[in-house]
Design a protein around this nucleic acid. Structure first.
Lengths: 186, 186
DNA sequence: ACCTGAACACCGTTCAAGT
DNA sequence: ACCTGAACACCGTTCAAGT
């Protein structure tokens, strides 16, 4: 029997997935290189081989992972915008542990591309100031998720009865989104 | 000559102010208990006497400090809401270093009181669902500031030419606020 | 190419001790 | 009451070394 080697070879993807899981379940402050190594069944130093800039690179990657979205253009620019917002919201609320990074780090890489794509789609569909619209839509999604996650009590002593979807938040979101889309064409 | 004693006695207030300054100028990750002690001309351990729960308490206090606002009720609920939003935005954008905490930590203490006060003022002024309105207003402010700070390039290698106010962000904010207030009474 | 071991500087927090 | 010194467990990161 050969000694235990990492059962699955390490990879950037696996590192990010595992880090995301730790952050979402235990909080960002408990995500350390050493703990991450443990979870990957590897010494912490091995991570540096796949993420050369270390923890800084890891944080960037996590933010990117929950802020890069892609949707197909829909019939109207309103429907396209709606799809972007819903997809972004879903992705962000699924990862409350890295929300602070997502709302705070300047968009880079896949996130920057994602923003450009969204802008192009809306412009193509005939929206006059697509760049301003995208800023407004992103702000709306960010704010909605922040308030929702705050009030869900995530990151609190009583993590007991979390998880239950807040239907009021869903209603708030759809209502606000409709109003925002009406406002954009005015 | 007596030996140098802390020139000004330590206090919760002074600790928070200094911590805020470090976070805003150097970033949250560089705000450590030891560096904070240095800046206060005191050993790090002295801080625990004023903030018994240590760094956790410090983070809570910082979030609270940039999130608790007070305004006097105005002529209409619209004007009151406007004042709240402008004051909150100003406070948050002045402290980009702790924005991640402010958007993420569940409201406690002075922040929770601030939210209740805002809700009461809007309800008193005759707004039907004041609680929903406050959630929407907070989400709007949070999102606006997040997008603005992200795009300002704060927390980036080139901190060179930061500081300049983005007039576009001001316009976006006022435009969005007007639209939101119109939407709330519908 | 990919991972480990040992080492270094730094961190948060405690606790007994000083004044 | 308020602050310090020493100590402990833990952290991020490097670098030479193993395979």
């Amino acid at each position: 029997m050969p000694a235990k080697r990492p059962p699955v070879p390490l990879s950037r993807e696996r590192i990010i997935e595992t880090a995301l899981h730790i952050a979402d379940t235990q909080g960002l402050r408990r995500l350390t290189m050493r703990r991450l190594g443990d979870a990957l069944q590897v010494e912490a130093m091995a991570i540096y081989h796949h993420l050369p800039r270390g923890k800084e690179a890891l944080m960037d990657a996590l933010a990117e992972h929950v802020t890069a979205v892609h949707v197909e253009p829909a019939a109207s620019w309103q429907d396209t915008a709606r799809a972007w917002c819903r997809a972004s919201r879903e992705l962000l609320r699924d990862h409350p542990g890295v929300l602070a990074l997502a709302l705070t780090k300047p968009p880079k890489g896949a996130t920057a591309i994602s923003i450009r794509e969204q802008t192009d789609q809306l412009a193509e569909a005939g929206l006059p100031d697509a760049a301003e619209a995208v800023r407004a839509l992103r702000a709306f999604v960010f704010g909605s998720v922040a308030v929702e996650v705050q009030q869900s009590g995530w990151a609190d002593p009583e993590v007991d009865e979390w998880v239950r979807r807040d239907e009021r938040a869903d209603a708030d979101f759809e209502r606000g989104l409709d109003a925002l889309l009406r406002g954009l064409r005015a």
